[in-house]
Design a protein around this nucleic acid. Structure first.
Lengths: 117, 117
DNA sequence: CCCATCTATCGACATCTGTCAATATCGACT
DNA sequence: AGTCGATATTGACAGATGTCGATAGATGGG
């Protein structure tokens, strides 16, 4: 069985360079941006993102993320997937370990959206 | 009957001046920030915020917000309350009309949190 | 004083979401 | 091949969330 992978990447059209304080955003833009913001609207994901961002080379192994956030391994895996799908992290496997790395500029793009108020 | 009003204002401690890319944020900080982000993680609320921000004096009447977002009046009222509780809007009543105004700097504070990546 | 209008609250409902236990998958090493 | 360790997927479940209709509260006008 195949399922559609909902791609709501932070780099998608509409989520960049359209400060929402200038003019009303469209329904589609709002839908896309909301999807991106949902990825950031969870305490576990914010902590994971923060830990990865503060790590060496802004990269961390899953094995190093489970204990700090105090959640089960499947749950951490789930959150990392959400952050990756949203375009904030990339995944690379080295050996049996999976490393998640911050996507350069991804958070900066979010930052740009809210400037000017 | 009285109910506790959950105050998760954007100006609360921890949500300001603590870039989450520098060092891992605490569980409490993550919880507070997530609560704030949840307010922005909805297409209807993003549109409402956008419309208000783009209006004269960054202020708009509820009656002018219902039609653009295409939702029922109670739903719009609900979303405006969420945005107000989160510290993004303020409410002032003039006559029978309720005006919601953008809180200066509220979105900028969010913007600051994600700079540096 | 009654009515019309604008807004907020309540109650109900379907859907989404975060979480975990169990299990599957994948890779490395004997 | 077999085993072990790391990670992903599945299934299930409780709780949160978005939505609306009905209703209540407030405000101004006849």
């Amino acid at each position: 069985m195949t399922t559609m992978l909902e791609v709501t990447d932070v780099t998608a059209a509409g989520t960049c360079c359209t400060p929402l304080v200038r003019e009303p955003i469209s329904a589609d833009e709002a839908e896309q941006l909301a999807q991106t913001m949902k990825a950031l609207a969870d305490p576990a994901r914010l902590r994971l993102l923060s830990i990865v961002a503060a790590s060496e080379n802004t990269e961390a192994c899953v094995c190093d993320l489970i204990e700090p956030v105090g959640l089960s391994q499947p749950t951490v895996s789930h959150h990392l997937k959400v952050l990756t799908t949203a375009g904030f992290l990339t995944r690379s496997k080295r050996g049996t370990w999976a490393y998640f790395k911050l996507v350069p500029g991804a958070l900066d793009r979010i930052s740009q959206l809210f400037v000017g108020s």
